[in-house]
Amino acid sequence: MSLLRPGHRGCAGCCDALAGKFVLDALGEDTIVVSPTGCLEVFTTPYPESAWGVPWIHSLFENAAAVASGVEAALKAMGRKNNTKIVVIGGDGATMDIGLQAISGAFERGHDLTYICVDNEAYMNTGIQRSSATPLYASTTTSPSGKVSFGNPLHKKNMPAIIAAHSSPYVATASVAYAPDMMKKIKKAADTKGPTYVHVHAPCCTGWKFDGSKTIEVGRLAVETAMWPLYEMENGVVTNVRKLKNRKPVEEYLKAQGRFKHLFTMEGGAEEIKKIQAIADWNVKHFGLE
């Protein structure tokens, strides 16, 4: 049985539940998990129940990295650190918006921990509000498409680059749609001494508006269109990328999701899709995906 026990309250097709399971499958019992506030935290621990088969702590929304650094310091101080992995599993809002400062501090201090951002590109737990991870033109409840709006007007923040700038020894991107790759990277991150980071792309059927049976399919389309490049960085340098053989146009990824539906119905939508294609093209060039 997985260390993330069945019976939790995640949606059918939930990306967070997959991510949590893959992390624990990769790392095993000698792991302490810190969760900031978010879907994963809420649906796994409705008191008095808990889905966590490993020690787990949730404190607040914006402080998971600081809490994790305190756990690490305590284990070291008491001679209990040994090979125990300390892992944060947090959403994009907790990571890239409200918790950014605490992450910066924890990485600068060099704690031996792994931070995993499970990025479903909006505040899903509160009802699909935009975050700094929301991609260009996604319609969310606080960046809705409308008569004079194509949805979120801002570009997604490049979080892995921010972490790499903290001299992290290992930074990687992954996707729940590529489980073996993700688990390999999680394990590598946790086995690397120091503060390491894995940014996991996680399609949310509820927030992105697709059927819960398509989570993996949508995740794969993100990678196959180069909207989500898979790469590893060691000491700030890209050391490995997942190459694309037959890259697909971004329309295939966008069409699969309700949050981009307006781009195909609104006047001028085709022109705006070109701007999204340009993001994919930049990824291809920047990371050498082809």
Binding site: S59, E62, N63, G70, A77, Q101
Partner: peptide, 27 residues
Amino acid sequence: NCEYMNVESEFSAISALIGASAAGART
């Protein structure tokens, strides 16, 4: 014989101690 943490804010100071105390440390 202790871990002395120079954190980046008071918010992280207390947050780190929440983690440390939950791990069984005197903080």
